[in-house]
Design a protein around this nucleic acid. Structure first.
Lengths: 300, 300
DNA sequence: CGTAGCGATGCATTTTTTGCATCAGTTCAA
DNA sequence: TTGAACTGATGCAAAAAATGCATCGCTACG
């Protein structure tokens, strides 16, 4: 899109912080780039960069403009996607920000299922915590967010919500492995493997423990649910995860037992996008598929 | 905005239906314009016009693109407005689609009040019926709509709603002029001056008459409320209008008497904008002022 | 069946953009 | 304190892109 090149240049200067560095990314001379920025500011009617001795920084007007640029780029992508769709071609790219729990089973399965029908659609999956996911949406760095217990929910338009109880995760040889239900109190007698405090599961567990007048003292605290699972598999105590991140069939060596909702009320897994946005066709279709899958999962 | 000129050209071709005609509007040769359209289609990745023997017409892809163009233009206007605002200058342009009732008193007063504070803000006011007003919003031809009893309300995001009873409008010398309240039945004994059937007031009156088992037979039917008022002022019967279109102080020679809500339930005057849009600063400020004014009016 | 209107295109000309070299200023470390 | 290493800005010539003109081929309409 030649006529939108100036937007790329502005973003390049913003990213690199200087014209000369941006010039390399843009395959253009610094002087040419400089003059295009100046020409743009001229017709835009106000400067968009502060000239600092060490380079360029967006001023408030530039920040506003940058948001417009991102919005317009996204909308152009949507148009392209819709145009491709009406010509019968199913192409496109879907950008997803999601919680860790979706990585091992859910998203790989959904994406491969989707791509079996539309092989020309490509994906970007970024692991984001509850705060970053929403920021990604606002910056148009993701089309969809699939997040457990999101933080603010402003700017977040919910497409689907699904309840997720907290599950205890342990080796199949663990004393509690045969139970169908666990009280939180029972778990506290064993070694605890907990996700770090920014994660929704941890927040829920901390709150529940506080209600019991207890404080959780993990033997292992990690920001990787993979670590939680594997450490628990070695028989090293009890970890916690939500059902969407678990697959009993794939791990006969492990046991997953729900914690009583009387103790830990569980949380909500949300699928959503930026409020007010019109999603590209591919993203919308994928979202629809996920909603269907989640609803079926909920019924079983 | 030089880099968006191609969008103007596309719209010009769309409007005039041919490159050669559009070339005149664009101050460019037909051949140059032709090649710019071709170049754009090339990088856009698909044709956006159908080449007919008699000219050019947007194809479905072009329609999608056109909507994007309008959206992006509006958003750029919003950015400009916000930039002007943060530099302390209060400039801008507000486009309003409104019902006729707002023309004689309400809008002139509000606009002049607004401009006394921000003299650099300019206005476009278009009279639109209930259906056209909403279409104007969708096409980004208006920022705000101020409409009595709008038709669909899809795409219409309500900023404020205000109840408007239907008022009987007559000469001060009319036999019913001294009443404080009228039943619809009483009015039917006199000559009726009615707005045409596309207007909200007429719809309400027709419904009410039907409930009485009567049919309204006006001596004068018009699409101008101005006509209704003036004809009634000559003592030629009873007209109807909503309060926002009347000003008792300005017309001591006339009487305005509310119709009992038992007969005609009245309707709603809505202020709104296109769903999901971020309004330019000037339009938003003006909308806020109108909401305040309407709320105060409602209290007196 | 001819005329009028349409978009497309080759070619010379004009306009715009670019690259190079250089200037003027600031920062930072020796 | 001085000089090296950055920064953005700018004059000027070369390269690239856009434009205007003339003309082609086509279709609809009278």
């Amino acid at each position: 899109m030649r006529h939108l090149l100036i937007y790329d240049m502005i973003e390049a200067v913003h990213r690199s912080g200087s014209i000369r560095k941006a010039a390399e990314d843009t395959n253009i001379t610094a002087s040419a780039l400089n003059r295009r920025i100046q020409a743009f500011e001229e017709e835009f009617g106000s400067e968009i960069f502060e000239r600092l001795p060490r380079g360029m920084r967006l001023n408030p007007a530039g920040e506003l403009l940058l948001h417009h640029i991102r919005l317009q780029r996204q909308d152009m992508a949507r148009v392209h996607s819709q145009v491709a769709d009406l010509s019968g071609v199913r192409r496109g790219h879907v950008k997803i920000a999601c919680s860790q729990a979706l990585l091992p089973y859910f998203l790989p399965r959904e994406i491969s299922k989707y791509r079996s029908e539309f092989p020309d659609v490509t994906f970007t999956v970024n692991v984001r915590d509850r705060i970053q996911a929403e920021r990604d949406l606002v910056n148009f760095e993701s089309d969809l967010a699939l997040v457990f217990e999101p933080a603010h929910m402003v700017d977040f338009e919910v497409l689907h919500a699904m309840h997720q109880p907290v599950m205890a995760v342990m080796s199949a040889a663990h004393p509690l492995a045969d139970r169908t239900n666990l009280r939180l109190r029972e778990c506290l007698d064993y070694n605890l493997i907990l996700p770090a405090s920014q994660f929704g599961v941890r927040v829920l567990l901390d709150q529940a423990a506080a209600r019991l007048g207890r404080k959780l003292e993990p033997v292992l605290e990690t920001d990787s649910f993979d670590m939680v699972r594997h450490f628990a598999a070695y028989g090293q105590g009890i970890g916690f995860q939500i059902p969407v991140g678990l697959n009993a069939l794939a791990r006969p060596d492990m046991a997953f037992v729900p914690i009583s909702e009387r103790d830990v009320s569980g949380g909500e897994l949300f699928l959503g996008h930026l409020r007010g946005r019109t999603l590209p066709v591919a993203a919308l279709k994928f979202a629809t598929q996920i909603v269907t899958s989640l609803a079926q999962k909920g019924r079983t």
